[in-house]
Amino acid sequence: MRIAISAIGKLKDAEERAIVERYVKRLNGAGRPLGLGPIDIHEIPESRAPDTGERKRDESVRLIKDIGGGDTVVVLEPTGKLLTSEAFAGFVRDTRDGGCKSCFFLIGGPDGHGEAALGRASLKLSLGALTLPHGLARVVLIEQLYRAATILSGHPYHRA
């Protein structure tokens, strides 16, 4: 199952980008034998629309533009479902085993997601009650995807 992260905004911080690249490399290696990956990351520029509603609509439409009818969509949303790492790994496994060819993880802009993305979501996922900068949310997401692969393979990285 191909994995894609589509995010509004670019990672500007070199340290965050280096961490993301490290976990992408790890996930591509660990995921291959499990039928996970490769992982693609798409950075979408923030909308320049004048008001919040228009920005959310514009960004939402651009986030879902390349998603096919049979693809699974996970929207990162502060009010979404909280999962343990084990439960998240189970979601990834079940999605893969259910015949999904691609799973898209969507990270919205500073104003949040528009209805088009929220309506397309198979899962609204929260990374926790704390507000995270978008770059750090991307780091946490990619690390959890790698952790899911290690849980599914029985690798000792996850020791909980």
Rank of each mutant, 00 (worst) to 15 (best):
R2S: 01
I5E: 00
I8R: 02
A14S: 15
R17Q: 13
Y23N: 08
V24F: 00
A30V: 08
P33N: 06
L34C: 01
L36I: 05
L36V: 01
I41K: 02
I44G: 07
K56C: 14
K56S: 06
D58I: 13
L63Y: 00
K65T: 13
K65S: 13
T72I: 12
V74Y: 00
V74L: 06
L76S: 03
L76R: 04
E77C: 05
G80R: 10
L83Q: 10
L83M: 14
T84W: 11
E86D: 12
A87S: 15
A89K: 04
R96A: 11
R96W: 07
D97P: 10
F104N: 13
F105G: 02
L106A: 05
G108I: 05
G109A: 06
G112L: 10
G112K: 06
H113S: 14
E115Q: 15
L118Q: 13
R120Y: 04
S126Q: 09
G128R: 07
G128I: 07
G128A: 09
A129N: 14
L130I: 05
L132N: 02
P133C: 13
G135A: 12
L136W: 07
R138S: 04
V139Y: 02
V140L: 07
Q144L: 07
Y146G: 07
R147C: 10
L152C: 03
P156T: 08
P156C: 06
Y157F: 13
